[in-house]
């Protein structure tokens, strides 16, 4: 029998799906938020399409950030790369001290309007949590396990693939999860530089003083964040439980 929490998540997902496919069903709920005659459901594009584009932007940015951050973390935790540890830490930290709006503002003159500056901002923002967590995961492995891996005659590459990464995976996944949630929220700002994301809905609402638009845009983003957060966390728990943690 599935747990109550699982059923609840499934319910939330179905409601979200229904809202994206048949938004007019929810019109009566949102009606009180707008003045008479104003549109209740976003009418300048498909909510479903915007949601998919929003998710695509996040997926591309986080995948790229995960690959780069993980590669960096692996590099600086090797014996030969240890001297780069402080440098890479500060590089990634700089990415984080820039507010996303500033990154967008700087990126637009270089890359023009659209998805590119948004992707770059999200990418930079996604790096730090993944890098930090990967670093934590790879540097806090049980010493006796690492000793046994060397003692058994594993090469450096074999230790990385067969022991270090699998053992660090729950912590690395936690970093990716943080990065996904941050990116989901930050991507809405991308609409200010004409990226196609759910931010459009919120901005349209703000411009035409339409509270229903703001609420529906915000709720979709929030629900996506909660569902993805939960799903990834469940995966982490499952991995960690297998190792008896």
């Amino acid at each position: 029998m599935p747990k109550l929490s699982t059923l609840f998540r499934l319910g939330v997902f179905l409601v979200l799906l229904a809202f994206l496919l048949q938004p007019q069903w929810f019109e009566p709920l949102l009606r009180p938020l707008v003045q008479a005659n104003a549109p209740v459901i976003y009418n300048q594009g498909s909510l479903l399409q915007l949601t998919l584009l929003h998710l695509r932007t996040v997926a591309i940015a986080v995948s790229a950030a995960a690959m780069v951050a993980l590669a960096l973390a692996i590099l600086v935790t090797r014996e030969s790369g240890a001297e780069f540890l402080p440098l890479s830490r500060s590089l990634v930290n700089i990415g984080q001290t820039f507010p996303p709006v500033a990154v967008l503002a700087l990126a637009v003159p270089i890359f023009g309007f659209g998805e590119k500056p948004t992707l770059i901002a999200l990418f930079l923002y996604g790096l730090l949590p993944i890098f930090e967590n990967a670093l934590t995961g790879l540097t806090t492995l049980p010493p006796s396990v690492m000793e046994a891996a060397r003692g058994a005659g594993m090469t450096g590459g074999q230790r990385l693939l067969k022991v270090e990464l699998p053992l660090a995976m729950p912590v690395i996944l936690a970093g990716i999860r943080l990065s996904v949630v941050i990116s989901l929220a930050t991507a809405t700002i991308g609409s200010t530089v004409a990226a196609k994301t759910l931010g459009e809905v919120i901005i349209a609402g703000l411009q035409s003083n339409n509270l229903a638009f703001v609420v529906q845009g915000g709720l979709i983003v929030a629900t996506l964040a909660v569902l993805l957060h939960d799903g990834l966390q469940a995966a982490e728990r499952k991995l960690a439980a297998r190792m008896g943690r």
Partner: peptide, 20 residues
């Protein structure tokens, strides 16, 4: 070294079993 170690058994305190 890694080939040498595959030919020599090595057991340590706290066993060092791979938890995964």
């Amino acid at each position: 070294g890694y080939e040498l170690r595959r030919r020599i058994g090595y057991a340590i305190q706290g066993h060092g079993l791979f938890p995964h």
